[in-house]
Amino acid sequence: MHVSVEQAREMLSALLSPPGHETVPLQGALGRTLAAPLRALVSHPSATESALDGIACREADTLGATPGAPARLRVVGESRAGLPFPASVGPGECTRIYTGAPMPAGADAICPVEELLDDGPEHVLLRRPASPGDVRREGGDFRAGEEVMAAGLPLTAPRVALAAALGHQTLPVRRRFRVALLSTGDEVVEPGQLLRPGQVYDSNRYGLAAMLAECGCEVVMLGHAPDSVEALEEAVARSGGADLLVTSGGVSMGRYDFMRDLLIDHGRVAFWKVRMRPGGPAILGGWKGLPVIGLPGNPVSSLVVFHVIVRPALTGQPLQALTLRAATPFRALGDKAAFWRGVIRGGQVHDYGQQGSGILRSLSDADALVIVPEGQPVAVGDDVQVVLL
């Protein structure tokens, strides 16, 4: 059954059991996915405060102040973070104030320190009017009880910081998918070993393991299996407890594509082949209750299929594409969507040039995958959708 990229993504998502939820401390939240909305436990700022170092005063007392005719105010105290001024500021008065310090009662504006001149021990001269715009209002960022973060958000470093500012010590997150990873093929050799003619180092296993880690998955490394149904069955049997098995190699139409045979003859198949290039021979199915997606052995094909089909299913996040202007033409395929490697310069995308499925260096050098729909070539100057790498 040949399917589109969108159908492949939906079918893989349907095979995955919805992940449960767990609670983790803030220190362990980076890279996880928020499982429930977060509400603010406090307001931020918790009080109306100054955005600058300077003085807090009444705006009305400073209107018309210039370097040639400064306004003169009496200093009656200071306000600093953690130690606010305890009284009110009256007409003609001010307090020294520091960034983040609460505004004293009666004051409604700030004059920055660089616009001030001392006039004896108890007075200051303002060379311009004080500004209410330099006052941060209580709850200006968020208010207690407000829903600030939605379920499904990936927890980046700024979002972890925001969660802490909301007052949360622990966060509800999606449980990590447990994904078993297996590479196959008699020609595949562990990096560092002697490479004989016709052999290739196992780049897929390490590239896919890194991509799974980027998705926040717990990776079960099954190593490598040679080309035999028995070896595959033995390796797959060691993936107990996994939510998904990801394999590379053995899924095309050759005599020794045993991963394909294992699923077709002894398991079940949801689809075999995706209308895309690179990566068409991918297969999705199951074996003894375990969802299995078999990726092509060519390294570019394997990693591109993971990027556009597997990653969105595992993260729950749609494929993020943006629109750029094509600086070079990109050819279309009559019956497949193409994901050509591109290089971005000056806001435009250029064809990388070498688009073969075995040119792994191209994925390292390229900035994006350029999406060319079936039968719709892209000309110079056309707008085109790209997925950043």
Rank of each mutant, 00 (worst) to 15 (best):
Ala14Ile: 00
Pro19Glu: 05
Pro19Ala: 15
Val24His: 00
Gly28Phe: 08
Arg39Gln: 13
Ala40Phe: 09
Glu49Tyr: 08
Leu52Trp: 02
Arg58Thr: 10
Asp61Ile: 04
Ala65Val: 00
Thr66Tyr: 01
Ala81Lys: 10
Gly82Asp: 11
Cys111Glu: 01
Arg136Ile: 12
Arg137Asn: 13
Ala144Thr: 13
Glu146Lys: 06
Ala151Phe: 04
Pro154Leu: 11
Leu155Met: 12
Val173Arg: 06
Arg176Met: 10
Leu182Phe: 06
Ser183Ala: 14
Pro191Ser: 08
Gln193Met: 14
Leu194Cys: 15
Tyr201Asn: 10
Asp202Ile: 02
Asn204Ser: 09
Arg205Glu: 06
Ala210Glu: 09
Met211Ile: 01
Val220His: 05
Met221Ala: 15
Asp227Trp: 09
Ala242Asp: 00
Ala242Glu: 02
Leu244Glu: 00
Thr247Val: 10
Arg255Gly: 15
Gly267Asp: 03
Lys273Gln: 14
Met276Cys: 13
Arg277Ser: 13
Pro281Tyr: 03
Lys288Gln: 14
Lys288Ala: 14
Gly289Phe: 06
Val292Ala: 00
Gly297Ser: 05
Ser301Leu: 07
Val304Leu: 10
Val304Thr: 13
His307Ala: 12
Val308Thr: 02
Val310Ile: 06
Gly316Pro: 10
Gln317Ala: 15
Pro318Trp: 02
Leu319Asn: 02
Gln320His: 12
Ala321Asn: 10
Ala326Lys: 04
Thr328Ala: 12
Pro329Leu: 05
Leu333Val: 12
Lys336Ser: 12
Gly346Arg: 13
Gln348Asn: 08
Gln348Glu: 15
Asp367Arg: 08
